[in-house]
C-alpha cells in the first residue's frame, strides 16, 4: 500500500492506474467491480424471487450440508426464502442506498462549501456553524433520533445517510475554494470581468474534482457501515425487503443454529467496505490529495 511518489495531481487515465496498482489494489478493484455487477444484475442472476417464502422448508443449510434443499445454493432463511437471492438483492439495495446517500451528501456539502468559499460573510459563518454542530453530535445518535421521529422508510434512510457525511464535503470544498480563489490566475479571471458563477464553474470545479472523488470513495464505506449498523439495530428498511445489515440483524437470533443466514450478508458487507477503502486510499495516493482531519 506504499504510495507511488511524484504523480501528477490530476486523476490519470485508467490504463496507467492499473499498471501502477499493486496486487491488493488490483484485487480490491476486481472485487469492487464484481460486487457492482452482482448488484446491478441481481434481477437477472438471482435464482429465485427474494420474497418467495416456503414455510415447509425453513432454515435449510447451504448446498453440501445435511438437510439442504437442492437448488438453494446458500440455504434458506427463517421463512424458507433463498439466502443467495436475498443476498444479491440486499447487496443491490445496500449499494443503492449508500450511493444515493453519498450523492446527497456530496450535493448538500458541495453546494454549501462552494457558497461558503465563494461568498464568505454570513453564508460562510452559517455553514461552518452547521459543520461544527454536525461534528458535535455523534452521527449514529442523530440517526437514531431521526429514525425514531420519522419512522423507517427508504426516503428517510437516504436522507439520514445523506446528511451523514455532508460536513466533510463542505469543509473540503470550502478550503479548496479559498485556496484556489487566492491563486493569481483566478484573480486575473475576476479582474477581467468574470462573475462569481463563471469563476466557480470554469476554475474552481475542475480543481476540486479529485479531492471530492477521494472523499466520496472514503465516505462511501462509512455510509455502508452506518446503514448496516442502523439496519442491524432494526431501524432500517422494512421487512420483507432487506439490506445486508437487516439480514445480519434478523439472522443473529439464528446464529448458533443457522449461521449461514449471517455469514453471506456479513461477508458481502466486509467485501464492500474493504474494497472501497483500498480503492479510496489508492485514489488518494494517486491524486496526492492531503485530506486533513481538520
Amino acid at each position: 500500500m506504499t504510495a507511488t511518489t511524484h504523480i501528477p495531481s490530476r486523476v490519470g487515465v485508467f490504463g496507467s492506474f492499473w499498471r501502477d496498482a499493486n496486487a491488493v489494489q488490483k484485487a480490491a478493484a476486481l472485487i469492487g467491480v464484481t460486487l457492482v455487477l452482482m448488484a446491478v444484475l441481481a434481477q437477472a442472476i438471482a435464482p429465485y424471487d427474494p420474497l418467495q417464502q416456503s414455510l415447509i422448508s425453513r432454515l435449510r443449510p447451504p448446498q453440501g450440508f445435511e438437510r439442504h434443499k437442492p437448488g438453494f445454493l446458500l440455504g434458506t432463511d427463517e421463512l424458507g426464502r433463498d439466502v443467495l437471492s436475498r443476498s444479491l438483492f440486499g447487496l443491490q439495495l445496500t449499494l443503492g442506498l449508500a450511493l444515493a446517500g453519498a450523492c446527497l451528501g456530496l450535493l448538500i456539502g458541495g453546494t454549501l462549501g462552494l457558497l461558503a468559499g465563494l461568498r464568505r460573510g454570513w453564508a460562510e459563518d452559517v455553514t461552518m456553524a452547521a459543520v461544527d454542530l454536525q461534528i458535535a453530535v455523534p452521527f449514529t445518535l442523530l440517526a437514531l433520533l431521526i429514525l425514531a421521529l420519522f419512522g423507517t422508510s427508504l426516503t428517510v434512510m437516504v436522507c439520514v445517510l445523506g446528511i451523514a457525511g455532508w460536513e466533510q464535503y463542505a469543509r473540503i470544498v470550502r478550503a479548496e475554494v479559498r485556496k484556489i480563489t487566492e491563486l493569481p490566475f483566478i484573480e486575473a479571471a475576476r479582474a477581467s470581468g468574470g462573475g462569481q458563477r463563471y469563476v466557480a464553474l470554469t476554475h474552481v470545479l475542475p480543481n476540486i474534482v479529485s479531492p471530492l472523488v477521494v472523499q466520496f470513495t472514503l465516505s462511501f464505506s462509512n455510509i455502508v457501515i452506518l446503514e448496516s449498523t442502523l439496519s442491524f439495530l432494526g431501524l432500517g428498511v422494512q421487512p420483507p425487503t432487506a439490506t445486508l445489515g437487516t439480514m445480519v440483524g434478523y439472522g443473529r437470533d439464528y446464529m448458533p443454529t443457522a449461521p449461514w443466514l449471517v455469514i453471506a450478508p456479513a461477508a458481502l458487507i466486509v467485501l464492500i467496505t474493504f474494497s472501497v477503502q483500498i480503492l479510496g486510499d489508492w485514489l488518494r495516493d494517486r491524486a496526492d490529495v492531503r485530506l486533513r482531519v481538520r
Binding site: Q53, L55, L79, G151, T152, Q238, P239, P240
Partner: peptide
C-alpha cells in the same frame, strides 16, 4: 406477519407488512 401477507396474496389480496 410476512407469512400472512403471502397467504393473502394466494387468494388475491395485496398485503404489506409494516414493522414498527
Amino acid at each position: 406477519a410476512q407469512a400472512i401477507t403471502e397467504m393473502w396474496a394466494e387468494v388475491g389480496i395485496k398485503g404489506r407488512v409494516n414493522v414498527s
